[in-house]
Amino acid sequence: MTLVWIAITIGVYLISRKLSFRWASPFKNVVFLSTAILIVTLLLFGQSYDVYEPAKDIITILLGPATVALGLPLYRNLPTLLARARRALSAIVFGTLSTIAIAVLFGGVLKLTDHVLIALSVKSVTSPIALELARQLQGDAALAASVAVACGILGAMLGPFLLNMFGVTDPFTRGLALGTISHGIGTAQAATEHPLSGATGGAAMGLSAIFTSFLLPYLLPFLI
């Protein structure tokens, strides 16, 4: 059954990918489409997530190497990045800081529970890292991974529209912004716009993840 679910996931992904090239809508995001289709399918067959979980465990074995693989675009675009290093770095640092601070402070005002607040604080790093960070921060790791994914999907859906609204046309900046706020899913979205955006997205998600991992254990006590 696990193999069947893996096959279904691959099939749904490939169909969503085809569809996403055709439409122009925030809902065209591949992760959003695939996830929605899979959840509806599970619910239609009256299944809970437990049935699907073994398939997840197998597919996510590759998430570690896939994260490491981002070292390659980082290497390839190092000259471009270094040429605008100071701006790019401060953009990533302040972008990361502001999105974490706003999320946790806003979440606190809206009376979210501590587990959700910890999950919010790690939302802008890629989910395997969010999972580890949340564990280190004594939060709910599975919840943190899910909130990070939700954040990634929302950012990948809304980000390009917000950037258009603000008149941000530079592919360097678009990738940087999407990678900073929405990690891998934002980077995947950025890569569909422009190769340079994919590269700066990868660099941004990597750097913001390093920055967040180092800083958050010290920063979080001040925010919660």
Partner: peptide, 20 residues
């Protein structure tokens, strides 16, 4: 590495299904 990063979005789908 090119393949994994190109299909990076795929690896997030099973985790996202966990939202259910």
């Amino acid at each position: 590495a090119g393949f994994l990063t190109k299909h990076l979005a795929f690896f997030f789908i099973p985790i996202a299904v966990g939202l259910m």
